[in-house]
Amino acid sequence: MTLFEECIEALGSNIVILSEKQTHGYFEQLSGKFPITSWARIDWDKICNKKIINEIDDLNNWFNENKISSLDVNILWNNAGIPGVKTNLQNALQVLDDVLAVAPDTFMYNIEEGYVIEFLHDGEITVGLNNF
């Protein structure tokens, strides 16, 4: 079983696996809303409303401060061969180790409210809104 298959199993039945075309489209939307560096991470220096996340309470507080209510996310892995997955953020956070094992860098992108959570291979987690 691949790490992607293990992740899908851990996420359970409340998911939608995106097609290659849908995954590519969400990456296009993400890169249109957030500036991406040449090394494929978000250029957080250009984002005004952002927060480095050290623990889950930081994320919850940021959501409350920004009146974020939609927790539906598209999980996108920074690896061209892996399809994205639609799920609920709470669902993804419950099995975060499985989600992050799929590829070195992971984005959880909410199109409706315009936020992204970036999980980098070095352990850094940042959340922000697309208002650059």
Rank of each mutant, 00 (worst) to 15 (best):
T37I: 01
L3N: 12
Y26K: 10
I82Y: 03
V127C: 04
F34D: 00
V116S: 01
R41G: 14
A80M: 11
L100V: 03
N66H: 15
I36N: 02
P104H: 09
V16Y: 13
F27R: 07
L100D: 00
G128Q: 08
S69V: 15
L100F: 00
I47M: 10
L18M: 09
S19H: 12
A40Y: 14
N74W: 10
I47K: 08
M1I: 10
V73A: 03
G114E: 01
G81E: 11
L59E: 06
I42G: 01
D105P: 00
Q90N: 15
L11H: 09
C48L: 09
A80V: 14
N54H: 12
W44I: 04
Q90A: 11
N130M: 07
V73I: 15
L96W: 02
L89P: 03
H24C: 12
I17G: 07
E112S: 14
E5I: 08
E113L: 07
V116T: 08
K86H: 14
L18W: 06
N64P: 00
Q29T: 15
I53T: 05
V16N: 13
I125G: 02
N14A: 14
N131E: 13
Y115T: 09
A92T: 02
S31K: 15
D58F: 03
K86V: 09
D72T: 15
D122Y: 02
A40P: 00
S13E: 15
E28Y: 10
F119H: 00
D58I: 01
Q22A: 15
I68A: 07
N130L: 08
N110I: 08
K86F: 13
K21W: 11
I82F: 07
V102R: 04
T126G: 06
Q29C: 10
I125C: 05
I125V: 15
G128N: 05
I42C: 03
D58S: 06
N131I: 13
I52G: 05
F27H: 11
E65C: 09
I52E: 11
L18K: 09
I52N: 09
N91H: 06
V16T: 15
Q22E: 15
I75N: 03
Y109S: 01
E6W: 10
L3A: 10
T87N: 04
F34I: 00
T37Q: 03
A80S: 14
K33M: 14
L11T: 09
N131Q: 13
V85F: 08
D43A: 13
D72K: 13
C7I: 01
N60D: 14
S19R: 09
Y115G: 01
N131S: 11
P104N: 12
I75T: 02
V95D: 07
N66S: 13
L93F: 15
V85D: 01
N88R: 04
E55S: 06
D58Q: 06
T2Y: 03
D45P: 01
